[in-house]
Computed example of a mutant assay.
Amino acid sequence: MIPARYAASRFPAKLMQDLSGKPVIQRTYEAAVRTNLFDDVFVVTDSEAIFKVITDIGGKALMSIKEHECGSDRIAEAVEHMDVDIIVNVQGDEPFTDRKSLESVLEVFKDDPELEIDLASLMVKITDEEEINNPNTVKVIVDNRNFALYFSRSVIPHPRAVSDKTVYYKHKGIYAFRKNALMDFQRLPMLSLEATEKIEAIRYLEYGKKIKMVKTTASGIEIDTPEDLKKAKAAWK
């Protein structure tokens, strides 16, 4: 499932911007399909323009019925009556989505006999100081089994005593959910931490869900700003 909201506070209509001859959302959709990992790939959107872009190329798209604050809510509405086990959320602004990263997220569910994992996501090590301090970069800290402890736009861990062991991880916006965890998310109200940080993954933690984080080296380029789009165009060439 690729949630695709037309409006965006930092970069309005970013998913319809041209990326080397095709809209960003089309590039992302085609990348997800190309992995050959899924029974089906859908774009779930509130935009007739995005819906048309995908259906015009023979792709699958669904129009949201309700207004949604985040991608998880949009996907939950779309899959509520589908007979599915694991749902993967690929962000619409991730045209460099690759098979290896998605495979690693799905793999954790194959070794979970106690059904301990509610959802899985990706994290990539970051060392650039500007990126570490950038509030648009969501950071994550984990326990010794790589279960998420917290996500923040602030610098976590706080560098009071930096050493060679201090590592920073950026959260990449790819999730794999058990369906029941996703449906719970839709029913549960937003609490204070999520409302403060504006990070939907926090809602799962606030209600006791377990998020398994998987390390990846595929950082890709998330298109959040016009500057990101310039970098994406250069990388695509």
Rank of each mutant, 00 (worst) to 15 (best):
V108Y: 10
V108K: 08
V108T: 13
V108G: 07
V108S: 12
V108D: 11
F109A: 14
F109G: 13
D111G: 04
D112A: 06
E114Q: 07
L115Y: 10
I117S: 07
I117W: 12
L119T: 11
L119D: 09
A120P: 01
L122Y: 07
L122P: 08
L122N: 07
L122E: 01
M123P: 03
V124F: 04
V124K: 02
T127E: 15
D128G: 05
D128V: 13
D128E: 10
E130N: 10
I132D: 01
I132S: 06
I132P: 04
N133A: 06
N133M: 02
N133P: 01
N133F: 01
N134V: 13
N134T: 12
N134E: 09
P135L: 09
P135I: 08
P135D: 07
N136M: 10
T137Y: 04
V138E: 03
V138G: 00
V138Y: 02
K139V: 04
K139L: 11
V140Y: 00
V140S: 01
V140N: 05
V140G: 00
I141H: 05
I141S: 08
I141C: 08
V142T: 15
R145H: 15
R145G: 08
N146K: 13
N146L: 15
N146P: 08
F147V: 12
Y150M: 11
Y150C: 11
Y150D: 15
Y150N: 15
F151D: 05
R153K: 15
V155P: 07
I156Q: 08
I156W: 10
P157E: 12
P157V: 07
H158W: 11
H158S: 14
P159V: 14
P159K: 14
P159A: 13
A161G: 09
A161Y: 14
A161I: 13
A161V: 14
A161Q: 14
V162E: 11
S163K: 12
D164H: 12
K165H: 11
T166D: 09
T166H: 13
T166N: 14
V167E: 12
V167K: 15
Y168M: 09
Y168C: 02
Y168Q: 05
Y169W: 14
K170C: 07
K170M: 07
K170F: 00
H171T: 09
H171E: 04
K172M: 12
G173I: 02
G173V: 04
I174V: 14
Y175D: 06
A176E: 09
A176Q: 10
F177G: 05
K179T: 00
K179L: 00
N180R: 01
A181Y: 00
L182N: 07
M183C: 00
M183H: 01
D184Q: 02
D184C: 00
F185Y: 15
Q186K: 08
Q186Y: 05
L188W: 01
L188F: 04
L188S: 06
